[in-house]
Design a protein around this nucleic acid. Structure first.
Lengths: 167, 167
DNA sequence: TTGGAATGTCAACAACGCTGACATAAAATA
DNA sequence: TATTTTATGTCAGCGTTGTTGACATTCCAA
């Protein structure tokens, strides 16, 4: 590991631009792999990544509102609305008017929506599981630590929420 | 590390869907943080991520051809062409007809192009450096190992190329 | 009860993926 | 050598998914 791309623990106090650049390119190439499998499934259905993200987080927090989802996804409500509209029309998502506050719409996956979510997340978990196994248990902890440190603070809050619930 | 989101080394032999889901969401949130800083600079100039990627890899391999770039970026030549055209028009990239093979165009950054590349990569390095320091040296090794394991094999080849040259 | 703030929808525009058609240069072949 | 095939890059047009602007509905506060 001393030669090539690896680096020893000690040498990391001196982070060269070269080492940082490798980390940057690793993020780029890895993210493509990370999205490749779901992308294939989505394409068959005529959907894109935006649909995947919406379905993922509605499954994660059933009954969440459009506004909540907006904050998590970090897009405009207009952009999200287009995606939700098609998912609702296709019967994958149900939108219920709020009882306490009638302005709000609470979002739920239908049976069909859950089926798609399962297919997508199973594909992605398979990739993640394989990567974890290749890299080993020690690596996984480090992976998660660096990723968390790389998030914007607000996003880290959303992520921490997910951790609690996941216990 | 036993409570919250962390996991001990031993327990990783049993990868729950819950643990994998956390890894998936971590990738999603972290990638957004990873691109946030360059995105702000690009927006000022009227460019997008596609421009960033092109500029990055032209800087990495000066004189590379459009075809080479295509393989690395994993997009169609038509899509890349639009981006290159604007970069050339704006004087950030120079395109030289090949001497050996006149069909090829060899790509170089101009002074202005190098300046933009520096601004973008410096912003991204700053974020990466901060994340590395927060997570610690051990974590960085694991981070890189998992990312590399998550790439598609062909992409891993491109990444390994970068490693050799970088050594 | 009236005015402002919050929530969500509809319309139109920009960035950047995509396929198809094409020009030019090189290579293969008749 | 002349002709066909292959490779490289450009131009045109379309779809997804970001964006801002305008608006209807609902809630809340003055």
């Amino acid at each position: 590991m001393a030669e090539g791309g690896g680096q020893s623990s000690e040498s990391l106090l001196f982070l060269t631009d070269e080492q940082l650049r490798k980390g940057i390119e690793a993020m780029f190439f890895a993210y493509r792999g990370f999205t490749a499998d779901p992308d294939r499934i989505l394409e068959e259905q005529g959907y894109g990544r935006a649909h995947h993200r919406a379905v993922h987080f509605i499954n994660r927090w059933p009954g969440t509102t459009v506004n909540n989802l907006l904050a998590i996804l970090g897009v405009t409500k207009q952009s999200l609305n287009r995606v939700l509209r098609s998912l609702i029309e296709d019967g994958l998502v149900e939108s219920r008017v709020g009882t306490r506050d009638k302005r709000e719409r609470h979002l739920f996956l239908t049976e069909a929506g859950m089926a798609l979510e399962q297919a997508l997340s199973e594909a992605q978990r398979r990739r993640m599981r394989a990567a974890y196994r290749m890299a080993g248990p020690e690596a996984v902890t480090g992976f998660r630590q660096v990723l968390e440190a790389m998030m914007d603070p607000e996003m880290r809050r959303h992520f921490d929420d997910a951790k609690e619930t996941g216990g």
